[in-house]
Design a protein around this nucleic acid. Sequence first.
DNA 1: CAGCATCGTCGATACGCATCGATAAATTCG
DNA 2: CGAATTTATCGATGCGTATCGACGATGCTG
Lengths: 337, 337
Amino acid sequence: MPTSKDVAQVAGVAQSTVSYVLSGKRPISEKTRKKVEAAIDQLTYQPNAGARALASRKTRVIGLVIPFIPELEMGSIMEFVSVIASTARQFDHDILLVTDDEGAAGLRRVVGQQICDGLILMQVEDEDERLPVARSLNVPVVLIGIPRDPSGLVCIDADFEMAGEQCVRDLADAGHSVISVIDWQPAVMDRHVNYIDRFLHGTDVAAKDLGVTVLHLPGGADRVTISESVDKALASTTGKPAFIAPDRTIQDILRRILSSRGLTLGLDVSVIGSASPTLAELQPIPLSTIDLQPAEVSRRAVRIMCQLLEADSHGPHESLELVPTVITHRSSTLRPQ
Amino acid sequence: MPTSKDVAQVAGVAQSTVSYVLSGKRPISEKTRKKVEAAIDQLTYQPNAGARALASRKTRVIGLVIPFIPELEMGSIMEFVSVIASTARQFDHDILLVTDDEGAAGLRRVVGQQICDGLILMQVEDEDERLPVARSLNVPVVLIGIPRDPSGLVCIDADFEMAGEQCVRDLADAGHSVISVIDWQPAVMDRHVNYIDRFLHGTDVAAKDLGVTVLHLPGGADRVTISESVDKALASTTGKPAFIAPDRTIQDILRRILSSRGLTLGLDVSVIGSASPTLAELQPIPLSTIDLQPAEVSRRAVRIMCQLLEADSHGPHESLELVPTVITHRSSTLRPQ
DNA sequence: CAGCATCGTCGATACGCATCGATAAATTCG
DNA sequence: CGAATTTATCGATGCGTATCGACGATGCTG
């Protein structure tokens, strides 16, 4: 592997000059710049990351803490990971994976060894054991998700309250006066992520505002509780029922139950779910969705991180950013009259 | 951040002694070892990764090249990623993400900058533009998947041929004499991964061996071709039809089509799919599956990589490892008479 | 044309660790 | 008990880059 010294020799300049050509931190004449660049090309020189990190005290690597084999929602997690990695590259950074089975110790490790300059935490829970550590590390940390106490932390997430409002508003516009919200699957509920509460709060706010009824059976969704929800919905209105089912796994179950009662989506009943456009279109009756914009959340998380890294002000930061959600009409909801 | 020099000072020894305590590459007396370890604890010292990489020429980082936002199969990709990252930690290594939108240049970059010691490539295609690069890099490369020409490369994958055989054998045992294989979705077929061919070959081998008929309509699976497959299957036998549908997305469509024709899984018709145990159990009629053991493939990929890194013999290696697949009976297949 | 700021480049040093040779201390053997 | 080993530790050096101070060359001012 050639070094900057080799480049310098070929170009007939000092090693430091090569360094300045690369960083642009001092003026370099057109002539020597050309010479150096030619030498770099000729040797296919690439700077050594370790040496660079040692000298500059910056690794240009961001640690990404991913949830520990969640088995559920793995698809959506991959979308975050993938977009975060690509976006990081746009800012000339790389992503190091930190799996959550290392727990809080993992955060201390990668920061202590100075493998990375900052951390992005995914799927932050209400009371997360990693939060005190995150606050104490003196590198930037960006959370995806909002804990109960976000003080002293930089958070970003989809605007779940807005999402709840949008769903109810949309169904009310379509003429529904009774709207049922189906819970997430129990495994998700158990994780104590508060986006669920924020979403439900949004539906309540909209319901009060519009004078419609929102039904909600508490406790995670399974075949039984969904059936009950459907029963209750049918009993509660003479009009057509409407359902909001954000959890993807749950949508399948709901759809089967509705069809087994002879109800056709978009005709006798409205359903809004949450899914990627591709998945939504794949359904036999394309699903109207509330899109939580995972890609946009990911991009912003990286952008915030890189801003913090550039600013480099070591004091603790605090901010909270909510990404607007988007509702998309397909065929599973009634058309507004 | 404390350095090994600080540790040495506190312990009253030379910096090199600290280094030897950590690496164990030279004998150290019990007494000084204790002193040094105490100093390390007291200062919460952690070695600087950049300096270590610079001096030792090893980063203890493995680059993982992930497919570029595939949108499909993201869940299964995440399982690979997650297990690979955890396993790497067990070997005291970390994982750096390299997204495939950088293409072959990305491989050259991370190796050239010496950010990582080796590469694991996921989802290797038959004719993959990254292969010539992989061969030319002089760091270990492990492929998950098998290209058309695996010479000079280290490959690992699930044994798809065995999977195909197992499926046919199993359905034949259950009394089926006509077995239909449903293709993957077009997007997957277009990627020219040859595991599909290996799988199909396995089904043919078993069919010849057992004297049963395997039907297969070529060209990616969609609603229309699956319907045709079902028609053809029903026309071809007076017995009960059987289907093999490895692609997860396709399974849903197949199930709907079968149920719309009044056929009940496990009673009138057998279906074997491919899905994680969790997902298979979640179905209304739990799905009998052929398990392609993604976790085991991932673990072995990392293990092979770490062996190559330890051996450190820079000559080109070549090997091909196939992980046995496992068939699991649930309720979607007939019981053997 | 002397005096002075500006520009472009060089040389030296530090970053934190691994590693090699050397040396002092402890042990063994004749 | 002194010589030959072995054992434990130290000091020095190098890894490849960034960065600072210094310095020669150039351009400008009066």
